[in-house]
Design a protein around this nucleic acid. Structure first.
Lengths: 361, 361
DNA sequence: AATAAAAGTGTGTGCGTACACACTTTTATA
DNA sequence: TATAAAAGTGTGTACGCACACACTTTTATT
């Protein structure tokens, strides 16, 4: 059953060397005769030795400074959840010598993003976690961090091929497909569908396009033909927002569903309610309070949850796994696409149970 | 920012005693003058001292033996997931001196359950984790464990008021409601609905009734009137199974949805497929392979996931939190009711990231 | 008042690892 | 071949805590 645990001392005994030498092999500290190194390594492998992380953490006073670059949740409440996740992970990892410094930027201000990214870089953290929502602006930083070998983890918005340690987030394309499925399930005959991108500049937000693509692909695979229209809306101009939305709603024949690709479905719900257009169903993203309000009222049918808190948590964990626990980490981590409706909402609002020592496994 | 970490030694210094005395206060080992005890306790509280769990685990060679009483997954593949979760938790907790012994019983054999429960009791574990699927048979054991102060955690099937440390599982009633919502969403006009309880003795399985109740309540709150019928089926008698199902399907006018309250939706799907009744939609439970097969074919529309692996994981964790880490634990832990459909399935099949050190927080 | 028992307190070692340092052996250089 | 440098190896201490044990002071008993 439970074979006894192997320690460095045991390995040293078997290899007829001192624990110090085994330690050098384990940590590649050099200064070990090749012959001996091989002998020890072999014993390590065969005994499937697993270091005692408790003892390791105790004995090492190394400090790790991580930095997180995230949007201000006071500007957009969506970002509160990742922040919470980051802080949770930070609390857990504190005893392992990890500290996380947050750099908060205004999600509507690219210059602010650049400024904070510069501050972050100047702080010379050992690991970086960020949501690269400004595509063009972030690229030089990624290159710089990559050159100076500072690992960084991206979340929320995927950017390929710039050397991130990993990406944490949802599969946007597939989430669009999922939205399609939900609409289709509730729709016996063909109809028209509206896709609304709200408050994001499309050219800087590839993930919104992927959602759209997923939805369109879903319906193109169906036998029936659905009419699909796309609009972009900007809530900073309420009049324009409402009139453009009204134009779309009035102009599209047999419009039955609206797919909002951002966390702003509540804006659409509010306007439809005002116009008493209750028979148009809405599917949106994210459990922000305003959305929940309309979920409860029934005007939003489903929300797709992107697990934002978990994204924050896992991102920091990913850095720690790599730097502190020296585990291999996965390049991408797609979180489940949770389907949320009134009946199962409450169980997603309770904080999830999460924790540190999977590396013990 | 990061105030320095308080150690026992620091407290001892402040209280002008030795670390040993502080240790006695922390662990109630007695032998401390009341005056001194109060002085030390005050300093502990004020300094919000948090013990270093790494050092604690290192320094203590205490061993904890847990026992898990679960059905045989070779008889019903549903039970593989909790077993996996248990083993994951066990692997993580190994370094904290925890071992978990499994007692496997045949889920269709109450006598076997009793036998294994007796074996378990005889092994005198320090904590017990079980799925009490045989209501009548389990009660005496619960009483016995309660009397001898052995904490036990129930999962999958809720039994109130017999002194469990906690219950881990889904909210059956609410999951029935959720099934109702999903059916209703895909149903523009009133129709008939069939509820099928498969392979469970109803009198011993209150959770199935709760699911039924939830579904019925959902529809009774709607304006339209839906006809709802219930049947019980037993797959060990395939002929009877098929004929009874056929009778129901033929006998109910305008039957459009079947709600299978167990993990056996695939049996219904198979039979409907054989009879080419593709327009009846099925909602069932659990991501067992046979169900996934029909989910992919489209004959099952949605599966509600009860997070069985997580149930196993959290159950063992709950015991550890209570016994090893001496944390307060919640009486009930309802897991999210995940809605699974073809488009988001894959993200629930990937193993979840879980881990040990939330207690560090 | 002498002595035993009990209550209270301090000291020291070990848990498994990291890491600095001292020491020994081999190799390179003159 | 002497000697310095480099390579290789062993020893010891610290990390924060648990816990056994030794020791000191107080209280109870005769």
């Amino acid at each position: 059953m439970d074979q006894k645990i192997i320690r460095i001392k045991d390995i040293a005994l078997k290899a007829k060397v001192s624990p110090g030498t085994v330690d050098r092999v384990i940590h590649n500290r050099g200064k070990v005769a090749e012959k001996v190194r091989i002998r020890i390594q072999k014993i390590i492998d065969e005994s499937n030795y697993e270091p005692n992380l408790m003892a390791r953490a105790l004995g090492s006073k190394k400090q790790y400074r991580f930095a997180a670059l995230i949007p201000d949740h006071q500007v957009d409440s969506y970002w509160l959840a990742p922040k919470t996740g980051i802080e949770k992970a930070a609390a857990e990892l504190k005893q392992f010598g990890v500290s996380v410094q947050q750099f908060i930027f205004n999600p509507y201000d690219a210059k602010d993003f650049v400024r904070k990214a510069e501050e972050l870089t100047a702080a010379r953290p050992e690991g970086i976690f960020l949501s690269p929502i400004f595509y063009h602006e972030v690229l030089p930083f990624l290159a710089q961090w990559h050159d100076s070998s500072v690992p960084f983890v991206l979340f929320n918005t995927e950017i390929s091929d710039h050397g991130p340690l990993s990406y944490i987030g949802q599969d946007s394309y597939q989430s669009g497909k999922l939205a399609g499925k939900l609409m289709h399930y509730g729709q016996s005959e063909p109809c028209s569908i509206l896709i609304a991108h709200i408050d994001e500049k499309i050219d800087n937000a590839a993930h919104l396009l992927k959602k759209e693509e997923g939805l369109r692909d879903y319906f193109s695979q169906q036998q029936d033909v659905f009419g699909i229209t796309t609009i972009e809306l900007d809530s900073s101009d309420p009049e324009g927002f409402n009139s453009r939305l009204a134009d779309a709603v009035n102009g599209i024949a047999d419009l039955r569903h609206i797919f909002v690709t951002t966390s702003k479905a509540h804006l659409v719900a509010a306007e439809l309610e005002r116009r008493q257009l209750g028979d148009i169903r809405i599917i949106g993203y994210d459990l922000v309070p305003a959305n929940l309000h309309y979920l409860e009222k029934g005007s939003i049918g489903f929300l797709i949850n992107q697990n934002p808190e978990r994204q924050g948590y896992l991102g920091i964990r990913q850095l720690a796994d790599f730097l502190v626990f020296r585990k291999a980490v996965s390049k991408t981590k797609f979180l489940p696409l949770d389907i949320i409706t009134l009946e199962n909402l409450r169980y997603y609002l309770e904080e999830d149970v999460m924790n540190v020592a999977e590396k013990l496994a």
